[in-house]
């Protein structure tokens, strides 16, 4: 008899995440893959893997979320906002403000004392406040993601990057490099600029709140620190930040 009581699938624009949980909400097994255009096939494969590893029966309910949510045969389909709130609440057990930074989207969610969504905001369709923005510019600087912390560490003089448009910022960065600015300063400036963008998205939602972070970008410690500075308070990163949405989806059908 398997311990798995629910499965959650978060079919995001960049990555697809799936988890199986037990009755206590503990993640038994998880899968993270780069998203494929053939959503149905990919989810079927992830689900099969989860079932194989956890022994979950075909009758175990599935909660689906993410951009591809409607293409998944699930017991319940909910948006990422509602699922992230539930996932975050599972970890914190109290009200908080969640900043979820993913590939295409950045969301700020005010989670109420019962795990409900009280308010939320998302970046506009421009990529300037998202993980994609970082990705584009890091590629330009030829800095791998896992080296950011090391490269930007201890940088006291962040270069000011004023452009809020990804394309403009990219050309601004090119010219800073051409002017001989050290990469460390540019990296620090880049994170600061992105953090201030997210802080303005959060607006009043971040005031007097316990701020937590989820999503793939939460694994970037430099970003977490920059955001903390922009919001004027330390930020706690949720466990398995990339899986919070999938966890929330599973909790909704538990």
């Amino acid at each position: 008899m398997s311990d798995a009581v629910a499965i959650g699938v978060d079919c995001g624009s960049t990555t697809t995440k799936a988890v199986a949980i037990d009755s206590g909400g503990r993640i038994l097994y998880s899968v993270v893959e780069r998203s494929h255009p053939r959503i149905e096939e990919q989810t079927e494969r992830c689900l099969a893997l989860l079932r194989e590893r956890t022994g979950a029966a075909a009758s175990v309910p599935i909660g689906a979320t993410g951009y591809g949510r409607k293409r998944i045969a699930a017991s319940r389909v909910l948006t990422e906002i509602t699922c992230h709130a539930r996932g975050a609440f599972f970890h914190t057990g109290k009200a908080c403000t969640l900043v979820d930074m993913g590939g295409q989207d950045t969301k700020v969610i005010r989670v109420g004392p019962g795990g409900d969504v009280q308010d939320f905001a998302m970046n506009d369709k421009c990529a300037a406040g998202t993980g994609r923005f970082l990705e584009v510019i890091l590629a330009r600087l030829e800095v791998p993601l896992d080296e950011i912390a090391q490269r930007a560490a201890g940088e006291a003089r962040p270069v000011s990057i004023s452009s809020t448009c990804t394309v403009f910022a990219e050309s601004e960065v090119i010219s800073l490099v051409a002017q001989g600015e050290p990469v460390a300063g540019i990296l620090a400036g880049l994170h600061r600029s992105l953090a201030s963008r997210v802080a303005s998205l959060a607006g009043s939602m971040a005031a007097d709140a316990d701020v937590r972070m989820s999503g793939g970008v939460a694994k970037n410690a430099t970003m977490v620190e920059a955001l903390g500075r922009a919001l004027g308070r330390p930020i706690g990163v949720l466990p398995d930040p990339q899986l919070v949405g999938a966890l929330g989806a599973a909790l909704w059908v538990r």
Binding site: L78, E80, T82, D116, M122
Partner: peptide, 10 residues
């Protein structure tokens, strides 16, 4: 679409 659905869920 996600925004609208999340808003209605909320």
């Amino acid at each position: 679409v996600t925004r609208i659905e999340a808003f209605v869920e909320m």
